[in-house]
Structures are given as structure tokens and as C-alpha cells.
């Protein structure tokens, strides 16, 4: 294979963006997948997207819009899902469709060519700037540090939140911390992966790792490896076959998920489920 492409500055940037984006997206993905809150993540992703478009329309930094919208959506959905007044599926679905509606509204109101807005849709890992990469790297460091510092609390909360609460772990704070981390991660990866595609990079590597191990530590490592591989393989495919990079990354991650499911040792798990809950 011809590796001369690595000499290009834009390619080096893209590889770094893929590394940091792949790591953070997969790590927060492990949390939402284990908590069975995948749809909340989808919703936060679309909120970030709508916020960024608002920023573009009104002329402020789209990342700030994305951050505010994603944090606000996490703050709204969390309690609604918790209190059980509405079925979580219903309430999250409503917030999700509202965010998509707002995104299209802001886009429609935007004057001019909308190239930048479309970029937020598809993402442009080949055109990320040094500044984007530094931002991604900082977020990766912060999320990695938080996970290391609160690992035991996070494991307790994502596996059985009720139990975590009952033994005196500040489970609610940890839970919202995880939702907000998801919002921040999505914001940081928006430029390179794109608003419509970011969520697959959160869900697919984590869901693939979930098929392969019963150890949370191993699951985190496997998910991170899958996330980074998806980004890099997608990047190469995009370069060599001249296809959109975001789409190539997402399709790669979906293929990895398919393979992980096909070869999952947990497929046998069905037998366990069918066994009655008995002594």
C-alpha cells in the first residue's frame, strides 16, 4: 500500500481527529449502551446538531450552540425518563423530533450557500483544523481522566443504578455526568464526523464490544479499538475510493458490529434467558 498520503498535512490531521474522536465516542458509547439508553444518545446528538446550526445562522460559534443544546437536552430528557410520567420512548421521541425540526428550521432560515451547514451534516474529517483537533484532544483527555477517577462509581451506576443509589453512591450526579459527557463528546466530534453520522460512531463500536465480553474494562478497550479502527479504515476508504469520509467511517463501524454479533460468544446467552428465574 502506498503510505505517501501520510505526508499530507490534512491527512495527519484527519488521522489525529479519527484517533481522538474514535476514543471518546466509543467510551461514552459504552456507557449509553450498557445503560440501554441508546435513544437518549441519538437525541443528544441531534440537539447538538440543531444548536450548531443555530450558531451558524445567528453568527456565533457553532460549537457553543452545539454544547448548550446538547447539555440542555440531557437536562430535560434525564428527569423525564426518570420520573416515568411519560413513557421514556414517547418523551425522548418528542424531544428528538423537535430537535430535528429545529435543525431544519435553522437551516431554512439561513441565508447564502449553506456549505458550512451541510458540512455539519456530513462532517469533514479531511478538512478539520488544528483548532478542532486540539479541542478534541482536550475533551478526550478530560473524559479519560473522569472515567479513570470515577471508574468504580460509573460501573455501579451503568450496571445497576438502583443498587448504586441504595449503597450511598451519588448515583444521580454520576448519571447526569455521563449524559453531559455524551453531549460534550458529540459537540467535540461534530465537525469531523457530522451531526447525522456521529451517533453511529458512539453506538456501533460500543454495541460491538458489548457482544464480546463480560468485563467492563475489556469492553472499554475493545470499543476504543473498534472506534479508532472504524475512523482510520473509513478514512483510507474515503481517500482511495473518493467517497464521503463520514459515511465510510459509519459503514465500517456497522460492519465491525455485524462481525462482532456474528461471532459473539454471548449468542448462547439466549439459552440463559429462557431458563426460568429459579433456584
Amino acid at each position: 500500500m502506498d503510505f505517501s498520503i501520510l505526508q499530507y498535512h490534512f491527512m495527519q490531521n484527519a488521522i489525529l481527529a479519527g484517533l481522538f474522536g474514535g476514543i471518546t465516542c466509543s467510551v461514552v458509547g459504552v456507557f449509553v449502551v450498557t445503560m440501554h439508553l441508546s435513544f437518549i444518545g441519538v437525541c443528544i446528538a441531534h440537539a447538538a446538531f440543531a444548536g450548531a446550526l443555530l450558531g451558524l445562522w445567528l453568527g456565533f460559534n457553532p460549537l457553543i450552540g452545539a454544547l448548550l443544546f446538547s447539555l440542555a437536552s440531557a437536562a430535560i430528557i434525564g428527569p423525564v425518563a426518570d420520573r416515568g410520567e411519560l413513557n421514556p420512548d414517547t418523551s425522548i421521541g418528542i424531544v428528538f423530533s423537535l430537535m430535528l425540526g429545529l435543525a431544519f428550521l435553522f437551516m431554512g432560515l439561513m441565508p447564502g450557500a449553506r456549505t458550512e451547514a451541510l458540512n455539519l451534516f456530513w462532517g469533514g474529517i479531511l478538512t478539520v483544523t488544528q483548532q478542532d483537533i486540539i479541542f478534541l484532544a482536550v475533551i478526550t483527555g478530560v473524559i479519560g481522566g473522569l472515567v479513570a477517577a470515577f471508574y468504580k462509581e460509573i460501573q455501579a451506576v451503568i450496571c445497576h443504578r438502583e443498587v448504586a443509589l441504595a449503597v450511598g453512591i451519588p448515583a444521580t450526579i454520576i448519571f447526569y455526568g455521563l449524559l453531559f459527557s455524551t453531549g460534550v463528546t458529540i459537540t467535540a466530534s461534530l465537525q469531523s464526523i457530522g451531526g447525522l453520522l456521529i451517533y453511529s460512531l458512539i453506538l456501533n463500536p460500543a454495541a460491538a464490544a458489548y457482544q464480546l465480553t463480560y468485563s467492563l474494562k475489556r469492553m472499554l478497550l475493545i470499543a476504543v479499538a473498534f472506534g479508532v479502527i472504524s475512523c482510520w479504515v473509513g478514512l483510507l476508504a474515503s481517500y482511495f475510493f473518493d467517497i464521503p469520509s463520514g459515511a465510510a467511517i459509519v459503514i465500517t463501524s456497522a460492519i465491525i458490529f455485524g462481525l462482532a454479533t456474528a461471532f459473539s460468544p454471548k449468542r448462547k446467552v439466549k439459552g440463559w434467558q429462557q431458563a426460568p428465574l429459579a433456584g
Partner: peptide, 16 residues
């Protein structure tokens, strides 16, 4: 049934 936590770890949560 796929939850990534084993018996020893879930019992340790009591100490956390």
C-alpha cells in the same frame, strides 16, 4: 444477561 459485571464485582459495590 449481557451486563458487563460479575458476581464478585457486584458484591464489591456494597463497599463503594
Amino acid at each position: 444477561p449481557r451486563l458487563p459485571i460479575n458476581v464478585r464485582e457486584t458484591v464489591m459495590v456494597g463497599c463503594y
